[in-house]
């Protein structure tokens, strides 16, 4: 409660600071409106996992770990592997994150990251079948938020995608043939914008997020395809703003893919 109050007073002071900068066409960290913070991706940092990646986006840090185990397919997709995504807002990441089962923010985060990967067809699930209808590979994507400084959606999505490209299916461990690289066909990239006043900003920092009225995440893949959209928060966008965001997401998504994921 007291944390909340302090934060709301702080955000009032920062709000004026951020808004007056925006009125001059500037962001407080000097970035352009469509500019990401510095992105760093380190793969393979958890050797015990089948794949892993630590993504640093500004000061936000997300660790993605992939585990792959044999299991039963869903009855309606007997000839496809299974993927599942989970996100933990670990209490080390922020004074406002509490231990316990995932709350609605963590559920939304995991589901939006999941949709981008699933709908793009990034993982060739058809190649993850051991015995149709009986045994398939299950890919567990677990996102660990380690330091929260804004824009968990894009940091988490990058971490998940990078970790999947690092993943080896441990078939030998289960006596199911030779180990093989997880078959990856696409590289989805998520781009998140927030609206503050009339300004639309890419990759919001924590301070920007704290005063944003509305948020939108668009996940795109190769060839300008759109795979997932999520509008968040209780503010609104105009149709024109949404169209611009979709177009920018395709362009910026391609740049991120080329620079960081290829």
């Amino acid at each position: 409660m007291s944390t909340k109050l302090t934060e709301s007073i702080m955000s009032e002071i920062k709000r004026e600071y951020i808004e007056s900068a925006l009125s001059r066409g500037e962001r407080i960290d000097g970035r352009g409106m469509d500019e990401f913070r510095e992105i760093k991706i380190e793969k393979g940092i958890i050797p015990r996992a089948e794949g892993s990646a630590m993504v640093t986006l500004g000061n936000t840090k997300v660790l993605a770990g992939i585990k792959v185990e044999p299991g039963e397919p869903f009855p309606d997709t007997p000839d496809r592997g299974v993927m599942t995504t989970n996100a933990e807002l670990v209490p080390v990441a922020s004074p406002t994150f509490e231990p316990g089962p995932p709350g609605e923010d963590a559920v939304e985060l995991a589901r939006v990251v999941d949709r981008g990967i699933r709908e793009s067809g990034m993982i060739d699930l058809g190649a993850l079948v051991v015995e149709p209808g009986e045994k398939v590979w299950i890919v567990f994507i677990d996102l660990y938020i380690l330091d929260y400084d804004g824009n968990l959606f894009d940091a988490s999505s990058l971490a998940a995608v990078a970790a999947l490209t690092d993943t080896v299916v441990p078939a030998e461990r289960w006596d199911l043939g030779e180990d093989f690289k997880l078959p990856v066909t696409k590289l989805p990239v998520s781009t998140t914008f927030v609206k503050i006043g009339k300004n639309i900003l890419l990759d919001p920092s924590r301070d920007e997020e704290a005063i944003a009225q509305a948020r939108i995440t668009v996940t795109t893949t190769e060839g300008g395809m759109i795979n997932a959209v999520q509008k968040g928060l209780s503010g609104t966008f105009t149709m024109d703003e949404v169209r611009k965001v979709i177009n920018k997401s395709i362009v910026i998504g391609e740049q991120v893919r080329e620079r960081y994921l290829r």
Partner: peptide, 22 residues
Amino acid sequence: TGEIVLFQMDGMMTEEELCTAL
């Protein structure tokens, strides 16, 4: 006002298709 308060999408669409759908 025509403001958008809920917008989600999942699947595979081009920019043109998505704008038509909207």
